[in-house]
Amino acid sequence: MAQNCLLIDLDGTLYHGERMVPGADTLITTLNEQGIPFLFLTNNSSATPQDVSARLNKMGIPATPQQVCTSSMATAAYIAEHKADATVAVFGEHGLRSAITEAGLTIVDSVDAIPDYVVQGIDREFSYQKLAEAGRLILAGATFISTNPDLLLPGAGGLMPGAGTLGSALKAMTGTEPIVIGKPSAILMNFAFTLLNTQASEVTIIGDNMMTDIKAGTQSGCRSLLLLTDEGVTTPQNIEIHQKLAESKPDLIKHNLQEIEQWVLTLH
Rank of each mutant, 00 (worst) to 15 (best):
L27M: 12
S46I: 08
A47T: 13
E81M: 07
L39V: 09
N44W: 06
D85S: 10
T30Q: 12
H94A: 14
S46R: 11
Q50L: 13
A80C: 06
A84I: 12
I28Y: 03
T48Y: 02
V111R: 09
S71G: 02
N32C: 14
I61N: 01
T29A: 14
G104N: 07
E93N: 10
A99N: 02
I36C: 09
V52L: 01
L27P: 02
S53H: 05
P49T: 09
N44L: 02
L105C: 03
I61D: 00
V111Q: 08
M73N: 02
F91V: 14
Q50N: 14
L96P: 03
T30F: 07
N57E: 13
D112G: 06
F40D: 04
P37C: 13
A47V: 01
V68P: 00
Q66H: 11
N57L: 05
G95K: 05
T106L: 11
P62W: 09
D109A: 13
P37Y: 14
L31S: 11
A77H: 10
L31I: 11
G60L: 04
L41E: 04
A99P: 00
T29W: 04
E33I: 09
G92S: 05
L27F: 14
L39P: 03
G95R: 00
N43K: 06
V68M: 01
K83S: 15
T42F: 12
L105V: 06
T42I: 13
V88N: 00
V52Q: 04
A103V: 05
T101H: 10
I107C: 08
V68H: 00
A80D: 03
F40Q: 01
